[in-house]
Design a protein around this nucleic acid. Structure first.
Lengths: 223, 223
DNA sequence: ATTCTTCTTCAAAATATCTTCAGATTCATT
DNA sequence: AATGAATCTGAAGATATTTTGAAGAAGAAT
């Protein structure tokens, strides 16, 4: 899960990034308008934490820009101001939720979890694909009703595959999504994790859903 | 299930009532001190949503009054203020939970469900899970009809597991639930208590219901 | 005040997972 | 078929997490 933190106070953004990393999120930080737009242009975040009270009021401008690009889904506004106006304005611009500073990291965590839950699964916690079922609440995966025990990375990988099913996924995209920083060039760990995930899924079922596309990447499909 | 909404902003209370009705709750609304007291006097609510920041600060007064009448069971405080003081004061006055505005209706729903679940647990004194039986009235636990003597923390831990059975529970969530403030980072005490609980349960029975999920937490299940 | 129980802390040992690597295999192109 | 590049595989080393036992601290009971 990737999160973008748009915040000009470096200390705060660092401590948030620190905490969220410990909760197994992958974090990027932007501290001004240009940086934020740049990041959102080239990345796909599960959640964006936006400090609305950036110098020059650019926080709202960022939100407006995100709205133009239809990327406001998953935006959680953080603000020192506690005014209702701000909240309303933010939520009207398409933000998902609003949190006033100062806040507890555990509360931030709960809000992010709620946003991601809502965003990805619209409240429904069962994801099905042919005879594969993922219960995102218990983080349990079954194939043909056989329980498949996955490690964290395997589970994340499967979730990424499922949410991009039937699409071609580049190894770069996988690396980016699962490890954040691009470990460009070396995909050994992807090969290994895919091998292991494949084996577990196939041991439980029959078909190999993970199709390799030579020179391009992978596709999660059943044909 | 009956819910009382004590809230002066009529738009908000209407939209909450609307939503909760769609979730098959029966809703009453009160918008001031007198109305609230009146309603609670003559009704028995499964859950009371209380806006603490009513004009004239009467939210807290209502809570005090509820406490006198021993009706604070099931109170969920809603507040625009996000201050820790408020939260502590509210919880000290016997409220069950606390939610800051603005919130998503789905989160409100989840909290209400949690409160009702908890209340029902208390009314209903036997909880069974396979060959494990918890009598919440006498606070005794048996496995295969063998009495298991648990300490307070172990008992709380077991109750938390049971009420989230078959779900993945993070160590953070356990820490949060058993110790309140998040002692983030250090889970040694969780490890120890789980070890002890496990040992006692297994000594009395056979299966290890507490399944460790590496890097994620625990799951209370029998598979 | 003393004893007993429970809770917490600590560090070593046991486990599980992640990453790296080198050799084998497959693939597209010639 | 031969070639080189890409992918797969199994094993081993490196990391990270969990389990465990023991001991000290805090609380409760006598």
């Amino acid at each position: 899960m990737k999160i973008l933190i748009i915040e000009d106070e470096k200390e705060l953004s660092a401590s948030i990034a620190d905490y969220l990393s410990s909760q197994d999120y992958t974090c990027d930080v932007a501290d001004d308008f240009a940086g934020a737009i740049d990041k959102t242009e080239y990345n796909n975040y599960d959640c964006i934490l936006l400090d609305i009270s950036l110098p020059g009021g650019s926080g709202l401008k960022i939100l407006e820009r995100l709205k133009e690009d239809k990327k406001t889904d998953g935006v959680l506004i953080i603000s020192a101001k506690n005014s209702l106006d701000d909240k309303i304005q933010g939520l009207n611009l398409g933000a998902d939720d609003y949190l006033s500073k100062p806040f507890h990291l555990s509360e931030l965590n709960a809000r992010i979890a709620a946003i991601i839950r809502r965003k990805n699964f619209e409240g429904n916690n069962l994801i099905e694909f042919h005879n594969l079922i993922i219960d995102t609440q218990s983080k349990t995966v079954t194939v043909n009703k056989n329980l498949v025990e996955l490690t964290k990375k395997e589970y994340e990988l499967l979730l990424y595959f499922i949410s991009n099913k039937k699409r071609l996924i580049s190894k770069d995209a996988i690396a980016e999504h699962l490890w954040g920083n691009d470990m460009s060039g070396n995909f050994d760990f992807i090969y290994t994790h895919i091998k292991n995930l494949r084996k577990k899924l196939m041991d439980a079922g029959d078909a190999d859903y993970i199709k390799s596309v030579y020179g391009m990447g992978y596709k999660f499909t059943n044909q």
